[in-house]
Simulated scan of single mutants.
Amino acid sequence: MKIYFTFEPRPDLREPLVEEFPNIDFVFHRKLKEDELSGVDVLVTYGEDLNEKRIELAKNLKWIFVVSAGVEKMPHQAIHDRGILVSNVRGIHKKPMAESILAHILAIKRVLPFIYENQQKGEWNKDTRPTELNGSTALILGPGAIGEEIGRLLQAFEVYTIGCNRSGDDVPYMNETYQIKDIMSVLPRAEIVISILPSTPETKHLLTYEHFKQMRRDTIFLNFGRGDLVSTDVLIKTLEEQLILHAVLDVFEEEPLPSSSKLWELDNITISPHFSSHSSRYLERSFEIFKPSLRKWLNGDENLENKMDILRGY
C-alpha cells in the first residue's frame, strides 16, 4: 500500500508515523509529482494541487486526506464519480483562528493601531476613544467548531452571542441561534459580525450591500471563512460610505490580494493575508486526526472523522 504526501512534514511528525505503520510505503514530496500517482492508494494533500487529470492518473486512489478545512479548489465531480473517500482536518483551526479573531476585535476596541502608530512617531497622544468588548453582542455566521470556540471566548468577556446556520438548531456557546435566511432580522442587533462560512453555492455573495445597510454604524465586520461571501465591489462601497466602523478580512475573492486593489487604500479595514489559522501546531493537530483515521481505514472502517460530502463541499 502506498500513501503519498504532497508536502514534507517535520521529521518529528514523519518518523513516528513511518515507525507506527511499517508495512506502508510512505512517499513524501515537497509538491505533487504526477508520475508518482499511478500506484497511490491514499493521498495526503492541502487540496490545492489536485485537478481532473491528476485524479484520472491516480487509478488506485481510494482516500484523500485533506490537511485543510476548505476543499473548494478540488475537482469535486471527478472525485465523486470515482467514489473516492474524502476527509479533512475540520476543527483543528479553531484555537489559532479564534485567538486571531479575538486579537483583532480587542485591537480595534482598545485602539492598539493608534497606540502603535503614535509610538512609531514618538508622540504622547490620548486623542482617541477606546471602547469595551464587555457587554457587546456578536453575530457569528457559521458557528461550527471554529464558531463555537469564538463563542466560548467571547462569552468569557460577557459578550452576548447569536449564531446563524442552515438549520437554526441550538449551538454550544450561542445565546440564540437562527437560520441563515433570517440574517436580515438579527444584523441590527450586533456590534460584531463574524463569518466563518465555507464557500458553497449557497454562500457565494450571500452578504449584499443591503445587508451592510442593516448593520449598525459601529459594527466591526470580520470575514475569516471564504472571500466569496461578499463581492469586493460591495465591500469597497460599504467602507467608502462608512456604513460600518471597520472590516477585518483574512480572505478575499482574489488571493493574493492584488496590489492595485482599492481595499489597500482604505483606512477602515485590516487586511490579513489568509493566515489566521497558521500555527506551529497545525500539522501536529492534523496528524492527531490522520493517524487514528488511518488505523480505522486499514481495518476496513470508512466512517472516518470529518468524512466529507465532496459535492456539498463540507
Rank of each mutant, 00 (worst) to 15 (best):
R90S: 09
I101P: 00
L141R: 04
S68C: 05
K73G: 02
V89N: 07
K109T: 02
I150H: 13
I150C: 11
I79P: 13
Y116M: 13
L112W: 04
I162W: 10
Y160Q: 12
S100D: 06
I162S: 13
G91F: 01
L106Q: 06
E99V: 05
Q120E: 10
K94I: 03
H104A: 09
G163S: 12
H93C: 01
P143L: 04
G83T: 02
F157G: 10
P143Q: 07
A145H: 10
Q77Y: 02
I79S: 14
I79A: 15
D127S: 09
Y116R: 15
I115C: 15
Y116H: 14
G91D: 05
A156Y: 12
R82G: 00
T128Y: 13
L133H: 05
C164K: 12
I162F: 11
A107S: 14
A107K: 04
E158G: 00
G70D: 11
T161S: 14
L141C: 09
T137N: 06
I101R: 01
N125M: 05
F114M: 08
I115Q: 15
L141H: 07
S87H: 02
I140A: 08
A78Q: 08
F157S: 07
T131A: 14
G144Q: 10
Q120R: 14
E123F: 03
S68W: 05
V89H: 04
A156W: 09
S87I: 00
N88D: 12
L133K: 02
G163L: 10
V71K: 14
T137L: 06
K126F: 08
S100I: 01
E149W: 04
L153V: 05
Y160R: 15
E117Q: 13
I150S: 11
K94Y: 04
A156K: 14
I115D: 15
A107I: 00
W124G: 07
I108N: 13
A78I: 03
I162G: 13
S68V: 00
I140F: 01
H104G: 07
H104D: 05
P113A: 09
R152P: 05
I150Q: 13
K109D: 04
E117T: 04
G83S: 08
E158C: 02
S136G: 07
L133E: 08
A138I: 00
V86L: 08
G144L: 04
G135K: 03
T128Q: 09
V71S: 06
D81N: 13
K121R: 15
G144T: 01
G142C: 06
R90H: 06
T137Y: 04
E158D: 15
E148H: 03
I108Q: 15
N125C: 06
N134G: 00
Q119R: 15
I92V: 14
E132D: 12
S136E: 10
E99H: 06
V89Q: 08
K121M: 13
G135N: 02
M74P: 06
K94H: 07
Q155I: 01
M74G: 05
S136Y: 01
A103D: 00
G91K: 07
C164R: 11
V159S: 12
I92C: 10
Q155A: 08
N134R: 03
M97R: 03
I162N: 11
Y116L: 15
H76N: 07
E149D: 09
E149S: 05
L106C: 09
G147Y: 10
L153K: 15
V111G: 00
